[in-house]
Amino acid sequence: MNVFVKLGQDMVKLWSHYWVNYLRGMGSTLVLALVATAIGCVIGLVCGILNTIPYGPNDPAPKRFLLKLVRVIVRVYVEVFRGTPMVLQAVFIYYGLPYFTNSSVHWHSVWAAAILIVSINTGAYMAESVRGGIISIDPGQTEGAKAIGMNHFQTMVNVILPQALRNIMPQIGNNFIINVKDTSVMFIISFTEFFAFHRYITGVNNMYFPSAAIEMLGYLTVTLSASFLLRWLERRMDGADSYELVEGDPLVMTAGTYSHPDKGTPFDERSKEFRDRTSQDLKFGRTRGER
């Protein structure tokens, strides 16, 4: 029991001392994860769409060749960036640029490098998710769209992608949460996110475990909030479970055949009393006597 009290005290001490650093680190982590997930989704979307453009034996040869080439390129990209660790990709890209250009070109901003690395990594995963999302949509949806004369692009934008995107929402959430945690490997290119501050703080004192506990709580808070937000977003995308019937009023006459009673008469619908009464009737129903 004493251990926990001690841990709590140490955590409070660390936090009161370094809370600015922790928060700044978490800020960087969040911004990096958000931006990179967003860009990664766009990359994935483009790759997924390019990968699912249909072609048949009747299409002209150049078109078929081009589409096949695109598929091969996307495939290589996905396999390479999905199949290697992000730490190494970071090293490769961050230190590779000066290496291959004989040190004439450097990364001026570690931010740009980090966003690029995490984005293309996320893009590789998302490309497959988007492809899966698109092919999971019933072919009947495509046929229905084609049957009313939509071309491939219109079908995609109006019918397939909205449904596919809804289906891959959990995947987008997955990737965001993975990115929040996995951006911690960006310390390798000296990007100072949440975990980097842990290394920095425990470098100047030896409260390794209390700091790790703070980090744990920090990551969990962010990822849990993200989960809840995503669930809420998904429910919003699903829309209401019920719908309202739009009943035509059989008593409404065709326009032009009805003249309003004169102002000042007890039947004047435009008077305030009449409008109030109508709205009350609609809200609460008529009283028993009037029915």
Binding site: D138, G140, Q141, E143, G144, A145, A147, N158, V159, P162, Q163, R166
Partner: peptide, 9 residues
């Protein structure tokens, strides 16, 4: 179509 194919979204 037999299976309607209304746009679900």
């Amino acid at each position: 179509f037999q299976s309607f194919n209304l746009f679900n979204n």
